[in-house]
Design a protein around this nucleic acid. Sequence first.
RNA 1: GGGGGCGUGGCGGAAUGGUAGACGCGACGGAUUCAAAAUCCGUUUCAGCAAUGAGUGCCGGUUCGAGUCCGGCCGCCCCUACCA
Length: 845
Amino acid sequence: MPYDPATSEARWQAAWAEAGSFTAIRDDRPKYYVLEMFPYPSGRIHMGHVRNYTMGDVVARFKRAQGFSVLHPMGWDAFGMPAENAAMEQGGHPRDWTYANIATMRDQLKPLGLSIDWSREFATCDDAYVAQQQALFLDMLEAGLITRKSAQVNWDPVDMTVLANEQVIDGKGWRSGAAVERRELTQWFFKISDYSDELLEALDGLKGWPEKVRLMQANWIGRSRGLQFSFKTIDAPKGHDAIEVYTTRPDTLRGASFVALSPDHPLVRDMATRADIAAFIEECRKTGTTEEAIETAPKLGLDTGLTVSHPLDPDWHLPVWIANFVLMDYGTGAIFGCPAHDERDHDFAVKYGLPIRAAFGQPGMDRAQADALVADAPFVPGKTEAVTYVRGFAGDADQSADAAIGAAIAHAEIDGWGEGVTKFRLRDWGISRQRYWGCPIPVVHCDTCGTVPEAKANLPVLLPQDVTFDVPGNPLDRHPTWRQATCPKCGGAARRETDTMDTFVDSSWYYARFTSPGASTPTTRADADYWMNVDQYIGGIEHAILHLLYSRFFARAMVKTGHLSDAAKEPFDALFTQGMVTHEIYMTRDDRDRPVYHLPEDVTDGQLADGRAVTVIPSAKMSKSKKNVVDPVNIVDSFGADTARWFMLSDSPPERDVEWTSAGAEAAHKFLSRVFRLAEETPEAGGDDPDLTRAAHRAIADVTRAIEGFAFNKAVAKLYELANAVGKSQAGGEARRAALRILAQLMAPMVPHLAEEVWAASGGQGMVVDARWPVADPALLEEDSVTLPIQINGKRRAEITVPKDMDKARIEALVLADETVQRFLEGAAPKKLIVVPGRIVNVVA
RNA sequence: GGGGGCGUGGCGGAAUGGUAGACGCGACGGAUUCAAAAUCCGUUUCAGCAAUGAGUGCCGGUUCGAGUCCGGCCGCCCCUACCA
């Protein structure tokens, strides 16, 4: 019987489903919760999904075999823009589009044979999920975790919608192409910044997370210590007696040469009646918000004519400028410029002819030398380096910047003109979206009572079905009746909030919902307490910051609102970030020399069907635009799921990118066919083979260690070795079948269907999915004799094979008697002889 | 600018400070076949017929011994950024 994954994989999947093998149940086994980041239902699964879910499946099946009660669920991150875009482009309704996509993708995912408890499946757009997310929102609102405030947004005047930063391209809306405006809107915010310090401090405890991700989060939270103080203004408009500034470098205060305000600063706004200032603000607005634009934008400034007095010397007056590089939403929107020790300030001072005065110089420099040092370029040494202050005001002249900053803050606090402040880069999380396809924010606006939370009894607030997308703007806004509501407080007429929630909200607590997906509250504590935390979370590095940070915040919010216990405030014990699936890119050029890309399946040996040669561009992430995509469905159809799974795990370490090649896929399939044949064709003759038994137990130890260390590529290599050992062995009958059963068990987490075939063919009891993970016999791991390499002066020159417990003295004697050693020693005695038992011998001549 | 990571055969990649290149791909040779596919058996870091020599981006250091540890360069990749 040939290896026929098409029929056998479906058969085993049915058998597992029948047995309920993957239904997660609370019992007295230790629990293990494996979770892969759930997919967006875009319409088709891609190779990245296959890799992600295969890795999770290896862990889930492995832990299950080791006796854990495993929770391994799947769901859909189902709200979001693409559904609305599809409705706009092709008509139809976002809901229909989404659920149709989910059905398609579920059908594509199931043939992969993942050990998922499908009974827990949900989509974040399900009414039940919306209901509980809204309940959670109300609880958070009550707990003081949510606020409503005015914020600047990117507004697309044509589509009449708010755009995310990444949807603004060159200052234009990505869809409409219209120039994006900045608008002030009142928005809902989660008060994540209340947790800045805690979210930062707790990173240290996340031992199971990659260092890199913890660092990225720490940088994102961005804690800094500095001095906040004000400059007294002279002749400023009413209400602006002082300009508040924040600085992390108060030690350079006496090197200040100007004060600069953000174009959005309140003082600037109040002065916008002046034509030159209004024009300047307009000019700054025009500079795009894209990275390139910011990077290449020249420093622009406008002298307001105002002056301020220096806090250390009231007679010292500094000019007040408006500068395009000062951000309103960091610090106070105003800075003092110290050109001597800041690159931007230096550029600015040179351009506008402002003085450049050094606060410090190289150790030992005097004031003139220090000023000369900074004339052409700023002097910005590390904060721990010793420098000499030539315009200092606190602490010794010779000290590090760190010491001087501390002294400056202390000085300002004692004198009473400033205070030490810790600031964070992390800002509150704005969740209002002026879109239809998201979770409605469950509040109403009442003329009498103001903004009022919807009553829990009235949840869920569901989206209306009768909407169209043929006109720009939010369909909820223009719906004839949906907005009409009753105020839960006074019973009067009220208007429903038409903003929906950012889809990051949906994915910030789905892991908790999986512990009791049908509950009529967000979670049930017994289930959440049993299953949380997620023991192993697996997903892409692209979610290193936002999704994971929001989830950490949400877990804390759920603790505060009683939906999780304190132990779950860090929801993910261990995190693994897997690499991408890449493929070569095949390109030709059209008659106007524009690139034309070709699908891998249309290219054979570097040629198209019509014989034209393609240019091969090095591997990159699979993307539709480059056409370097391989559809998992095609692979599963032609080779079977196990081949796709095996390939995804072999070759490259899981955290690195893996390049999909057709040769590799064929090789994987060839190997699996060979394993299948080995199991089918077990000869009865031959009897025992102690070497094979040893190889099997060696493999148990190695594969177990490799899987535990997320080194799936190494586990695969060890399985090749065991399969090769079986193939070469003369063992027959039960001895051979015993080795094959071990092979089946060890391969089961990776290629579960084939493993069942091999298990059944070699006399395994029941299904391998229910077999307990094998344990290596320590006695079989020990070799009787060892081969010791002999190094002479660190170079390997010979080797000896000795019984494994031979004592050092006898080994030394054997080494010295060795022909090669004698030749190198030329009769002399060795200077030194190092014997590392069981490992190596080194002769120092 | 800031932060992080990585440099090992033709390729993907192995290697608790202890035989560099496991395992796989590719290539080459052979068996089988009328022939091919499939399969099986070999060889495959480089130079050399060989003995042997060289070899983990470059330079230096620590060590009996360095791909691995330390210092300095070079190159590539990723993230992040006018954050005061």
